[in-house]
Design a protein around this nucleic acid. Structure first.
Lengths: 158, 158
DNA sequence: GCTGAAATAATAAGCCG
DNA sequence: CGGCTTATTATTTCAGC
C-alpha cells in the first residue's frame, strides 16, 4: 500500500483521506468518516487517536471571523529586536493577547507576528509595547487572496 | 445581558463561551457544550447553526503538523509585483498548492504568503514561478514563539 | 428557550486473520 | 497489530410546547 514515509508518521491512503475530510470539516462524525473511507467506525476512531498521539493532528479548531468580534483591523508585524533583546521581545509578544501567532524567521526580521485589533489606537498600543526593544514594520491586511487552505494540497504529486 | 455589538453579530456570554470551547476543541460535542454553558443541547445546536449562518464561525478545521506530511520547510514570502502584474501574481499564488495562505497588505510588499515545502529545491521551484513578475523576499520559519491561539483572547477588557 | 422520544453515533469488549 | 461485530451508553435531532 502506498505510504508517505518520514521520521514522524507512516500514513496510508485511508489516513490521508481522513485528514482531508477533517481539514474540510473537523466536526465530521467518525461514522461518516468511516463510510467515506470504507472502514468501520471503531477503526477510524483508532486511526484518529493515533494521528493525535503521533502529533500529526495538532489541534481541532474553529476559524472565527475577527470582524465578528469587533476586531476589524488585522496586521502583520515584522519585528527586529535590538541586539541582546530578542528574549525580552519574545516575552512581550507572548504576553500580548492581540498577537494571534508569531514565528521566528531567518533574515533581517527576527519575528513575524499577526495582530488582531479593534482600532488603529489599539494597534498603536500593541506597537508601543514592542518598540522600546525592537524595530518594527507594520503591514495592514486588506484582503486574503488565499484563505487558509489544505496542507494536503501542498503534497502534489510527490 | 452583556453583549458585543457590531455590524455582524450580536453575541452574548453563552455564545462567547461556546466559541471559546470550540476554539480549544472543535470536536467538543453539543451535549458537552450545553452542560458547560447551562443550556439544553438543542439550544446550543441552534446557536452554533446561527453562528455559522452569520459568518462568525467560518470553518471547523484540524491543525496538521506539516513535518508529519514531509513538509519540513515552511517560509513566509513577501511579494512585490512589478507594476501592472499584481493580478497575474495573485493568480499564480492561488495556483501554487504549496501556498497555504496569502494576504494582501499595505506597504512596500503587496502580498505576504505562507509556503510549506519538502525541501529547499521545492522552495526554489515555488519562488521561480513568482519571480518573473515580482520581487520576493523569503524568510524561513525556525520556530513559533506563539502557536496559533485564541482570537477571543484578543478581546481583552474592551 | 424547553422537554421527551426516536434515530444516530461513540465507545468498550471480545474475536479474527 | 489492525480491523470487525456486537452490545451498551451517549448524543443528535425532531416534534410539540
Amino acid at each position: 500500500m502506498k505510504r508517505l514515509r518520514n521520521e514522524n508518521a507512516d500514513l496510508d491512503v485511508a489516513d490521508l483521506k481522513i485528514l482531508r475530510l477533517l481539514e474540510k470539516d473537523a466536526r465530521t462524525s467518525t461514522a461518516e468518516l468511516a463510510r467515506a473511507v470504507g472502514l468501520s467506525p471503531p477503526s477510524v476512531a483508532e486511526r484518529i487517536r493515533k494521528l493525535q498521539e503521533n502529533g500529526v493532528i495538532e489541534a481541532y479548531t474553529v476559524r472565527i471571523d475577527p470582524a465578528a468580534l469587533g476586531l476589524k483591523l488585522s496586521a502583520w508585524l515584522r519585528i527586529r529586536p535590538v541586539p541582546g533583546q530578542l528574549a525580552v521581545v519574545a516575552g512581550i509578544i507572548r504576553d500580548l493577547p492581540e498577537i494571534a501567532q508569531c514565528d521566528r524567521v531567518t533574515g533581517e526580521d527576527c519575528f513575524i507576528a499577526l495582530a488582531h485589533v479593534g482600532s488603529v489606537a489599539e494597534l498603536e498600543r500593541v506597537i508601543d509595547k514592542i518598540i522600546p526593544y525592537a524595530m518594527t514594520n507594520t503591514a495592514i491586511i486588506q484582503s486574503s487572496p488565499v484563505e487558509p487552505r489544505s496542507l494536503l494540497g501542498s503534497l502534489r504529486q510527490r
